[in-house]
Amino acid sequence: MKKIRVGVMGIASFIMLAGCNVPSQIDININGDKEQSEPSKVQEVKNSAPSSSDTQSVAGNATISKFKTATDSTTITSEALQKKPVKSSYPVKENAIEEDTWYWRITEAQVNLRKEPYIHSQSMAVLERDEELEYLHHKYVDPNDERIWYEVQTWEGKIGWVSSRVIIKSDGRYYSDYADTEEIDYWQVTVNQANLRAEPSISSKSVGIVHNQDYLEFLQDTVLDPSDGRTWYHVETSDGLIGWISSRVVLRG
Rank of each mutant, 00 (worst) to 15 (best):
H234S: 10
V152E: 03
N21L: 03
G60W: 03
I209H: 10
K115D: 01
I242C: 05
A18K: 03
P200N: 01
R5E: 15
V141Q: 08
V162W: 01
K68T: 07
Y215R: 12
S53T: 13
E146Y: 14
G172L: 08
Y215W: 07
N95H: 06
I11A: 15
T107E: 14
N192R: 12
Y178G: 12
K139L: 06
Y118A: 00
H120Q: 10
Q82L: 12
S37K: 13
Q110W: 15
H234P: 02
A96C: 04
K34M: 08
S37T: 14
E108F: 12
R147G: 06
A80I: 10
D214L: 04
N195E: 09
E151K: 11
K158P: 04
G172Q: 07
L113F: 04
S78P: 07
Y186A: 02
S53Q: 12
R230N: 04
E151P: 03
S227L: 02
V6F: 11
A125N: 11
D171P: 06
S48T: 08
A179V: 10
S73F: 03
L251D: 07
G7K: 14
G157L: 07
N192C: 13
T63A: 12
D27G: 10
M16N: 10
D225A: 08
A80R: 05
A18P: 03
